Simulated assay, not measured.
Amino acid sequence: MPVSNDPAPEKAAHTRRTVLKSTAAAAAGSVAAAHLPAGAVAAEPSHTIAGGEQVEITLSVNGQRRPVVVEPRVTLLDALRERLGLTGTKKGCDRGECGACTVLADGDRINACLTLAVMRQDAEITTVEGLARGEELHPVQAAFIRHDAFQCGACTPGQVVSAVACVAEGHTGSDAEIREWMSGNLCRCAAYQNIVAAVADAAKEARR
C-alpha cells in the first residue's frame, strides 16, 4: 500500500465544547443587539470587581450619611453590625427565615441578611437604634414594654421594627391581621400573644 508523503493533518483547533460556547456567545450577542434602540451603541462591558476587592460606599442610616468600606458580597446586616457598629439589628438564622435582622428601607421592611450593602446606597435605612427620639421611645417600643412583649430579647429589635411598619401600613384591623403581617418574625420564647397586644395598642395610639 502506498504511503502518503503529505504531512499529517493538523489537530482541530476547536473542540466540540469550545464551538458550542462560541456559538452560544455569538447568539446571545445577536439577541442583545437586536433589542437595542435604533442607532444605539452597545455599552462597553462594565468594570468587574475582583474577588476580595473592597469598595467605599455611603449608606444613609437613621438620618446620617455613613461612609463604609466593604467587599461587594457583604450583606447589609454585616455592614450595619461589623462596619457601623449598629448591633441592635440581630443576626439570627442569616437566611431570611427568622426576621431578627429586619430593618426599614425607605419605609419598607426587609431582611438585612438577604440584601447586599452595595445595593442599598440610595435607600434610607432605619434600624432599631433610629426609632427613638432622644430619651423618648417610639410608641411601638413603649407598647412592647407595657405589654411585656419580649423575654430573651433576641428577636425583639426585628419584632419592633416590623411592628413599626405593620402599624404604618395599616395592617392592624384585628389580632388575626396583625398575626398574619407579623408572621415573618419568629419568637423562640413564643411571646406572640403579648406581641400582638403591643402592636394593637401602638396602632390605637397612632390613630389618636
Rank of each mutant, 00 (worst) to 15 (best):
G107V: 02
A143C: 08
V31H: 07
C152Q: 02
D6F: 12
H35I: 15
D148L: 08
A142G: 02
C113M: 11
Y192E: 00
L76I: 10
K21N: 09
H171N: 15
A33R: 13
G88E: 13
F150L: 15
A8G: 00
T87L: 00
M182K: 00
Q193S: 12
A198H: 10
F150R: 01
K91D: 13
P45G: 07
E10Q: 12
L76G: 00
D175W: 03
A149Q: 02
A165S: 13
E169R: 15
P37H: 08
L137D: 09
T172K: 03
A197D: 15
G88R: 09
G96F: 04
R73I: 13
A34D: 02
L104V: 04
G173N: 03
L114T: 12
A203D: 06
K11G: 00
L186S: 00
V160A: 08
P7Q: 12
A12V: 12
A203F: 06
F150G: 00
Q151F: 12
A12W: 07
V128A: 02
G170K: 11
R83H: 13
I125D: 02
C155H: 03
D175H: 10
S174N: 10
L84S: 03
H35T: 15
Q121I: 13
A142P: 06
A24K: 13
V19H: 02
G63M: 14
G85R: 12
Q141C: 10
V167Y: 11
A206M: 05
H35Y: 13
G29F: 09
I178Q: 03
A154E: 09
A112E: 07
A100E: 07
H171W: 09
G96Y: 06
D175C: 01
